[in-house]
Design a protein around this nucleic acid. Structure first.
Lengths: 198, 198
DNA sequence: CCCATCATGTAAGGCGTTACATGATTAC
DNA sequence: GTAATCATGTAACGCCTTACATGATGGG
């Protein structure tokens, strides 16, 4: 099962990190669908440390609070691989808007139209944002490569680059699909209404 | 916000039902993404009853346990409409397989291929199942119309039929999209491997 | 005769979220 | 100077899930 512990282990398999780094990675990624709140990240790291799947190196700094840098252990590597080979889980789509729409026939044309317009706008925005990020190939304005996980530019092998690119594409395709769908729905409803008016 | 209480209210707006009926509807629908477990359904109905958004009619039966038939009240109708007009929420995709893939470069070609094949198979199955259900227009083998919610054949207006059809289509399109994506990924990985071998 | 379905409810626990708590540094 | 970022942790709470608990009916 893909848990947050597995996710942390995966992140640490790329490079050692602090809890704070991991938290940022999770918060900044929509694929890593947890909130990245402190409680979960720090307690998970504690559990991983107890199980000796990660090692901890405390960096005492004169400046600022001391940092705990976590690395994946050999045991952790084995566990990671075990999970990598486990049966694929299937996506779970939480789509409240569909539930809202299910009883929207109680609303009038304008009210439904407004709802759908808002939804279309937001999906369009998501597509645009994700496309821009993908086109820039995750290069931040400064020219510095952004250190989000699954940045194809940071991939260690060409195969990893293919996979990471496809993961990004999956996300884009999802929103494009939603956009197409809401446009079709708006068209179908408009067409039905015009038919009535004539 | 689209809560399970709203969902129950919506279901009751179509026709009065028992807790058991509602439970079945939720369990049987992937759009209604809760598990439909007793605890949530019966306690939610209790809360809705306390708030007087639903009314309860106890049917004492000589045969079997007594049933509580819930109906939506006027107050409930108002609350339902209020939520129908609230800002659309955006879909949240829980996609553990993408996380699993993110570090799959540690596996060899065959291992990744097996994983992807399993995923493709399952997505294909989902698409087929949903398409058959949609083609049969939710008519059960007996010829009886299946009483799943959002069955377009049970829609009360033509507009509701359009909406319900589109909700089903959204779900199908999602899985078709996943299927297309995993096939592209498999192709890309095979192509890359062949390039290496030459 | 046994299993599935009808029908209602409660208990325990896990996972994840927001909010609380602290404190230094850096950038504007 | 003040807001954001770095950095770590705890507390309280809510939602949702599995499992427990009971008991009748009907079909194979």
């Amino acid at each position: 099962m893909i848990t947050i512990e597995f996710t942390i282990l995966g992140l640490l398999s790329v490079r050692p990190m602090t809890g704070y780094d991991i938290k940022k990675m999770i918060t900044g990624s929509s694929v890593l669908y947890w909130s990245g709140n402190n409680n979960q990240v720090y307690t998970s790291l504690g559990k991983l440390h107890q199980k000796e799947w990660v090692t901890q190196e405390i960096e005492l700094r004169t400046t600022g609070p001391s940092r705990k840098i976590y690395s994946i252990s050999k045991k952790g590597q084995e566990e990671l691989k075990k999970t990598l080979l486990s049966e694929p889980e299937f996506p779970q789509l939480i789509h409240p808007f569909l539930i809202q729409l299910a009883w929207a026939d109680q609303l009038d044309e304008d009210e439904i139209s407004t709802l759908l317009a808002k939804y279309e706008e937001e999906m369009q925005l998501q597509v645009s944002m994700l496309q821009i990020m993908a086109q820039q190939n995750n290069i931040a304005p400064s020219g510095k490569i952004r250190d989000s996980y699954i940045n194809p530019l940071l991939a260690r092998t060409s195969r990893e680059a293919i996979i990471w690119t496809k993961i990004q594409e999956n996300w884009i395709a999802f929103y494009q699909n939603e956009l197409k769908w809401v446009r079709e729905l708006r068209y179908a409803l408009n067409y039905a209404q015009e038919g009535k008016e004539k």
